[in-house]
């Protein structure tokens, strides 16, 4: 499954990066293609391209602040949750997202 995600948090120093790493790691372990854009203190990193978004089966917003440039995701299936949930249970989050959106 192709998944794209955006992570963002209040100060953009710790949670956004941990959540991004947790998703990438869980994706690698499960054999899914996961691309993660980090909206943090250094601005937008690993920005998702229009192509990435177009190709994605589902979009995960792991944020506790607003998503910048959210319009890019109009028309996509999205899931929103807090970065903490992703950090604590990235594997489970991915499994649930897949179960809900596959097929």
């Amino acid at each position: 499954m192709k998944i794209v995600a955006v992570t963002a948090c209040a100060t953009g120093i710790a949670h956004s990066y941990m959540a991004a790493e947790a998703l990438k790691k869980a994706g690698k372990e499960a054999g899914d293609e996961v691309k993660v854009e980090i909206q943090g203190a250094m601005g937008i990193e690993n920005e998702l391209s229009a192509k990435d978004i177009e190709a994605a089966d589902v979009v995960i917003f792991a944020v506790d602040v607003g998503v910048r440039n959210k319009g890019r995701f109009n028309g996509k299936k999205t899931v929103s949750l807090g970065p903490n949930e992703v950090i604590r249970n990235a594997k489970k989050v991915l499994q649930e997202v897949k179960a809900n959106f596959e097929g």
């Binding site: 790493e21 790691k25 943090g40």
Partner: peptide, 14 residues
Amino acid sequence: YIRILSRLARLLVY
């Protein structure tokens, strides 16, 4: 400096 803080945060996932 942000990069180094973020790298530590990312390492804690492992």
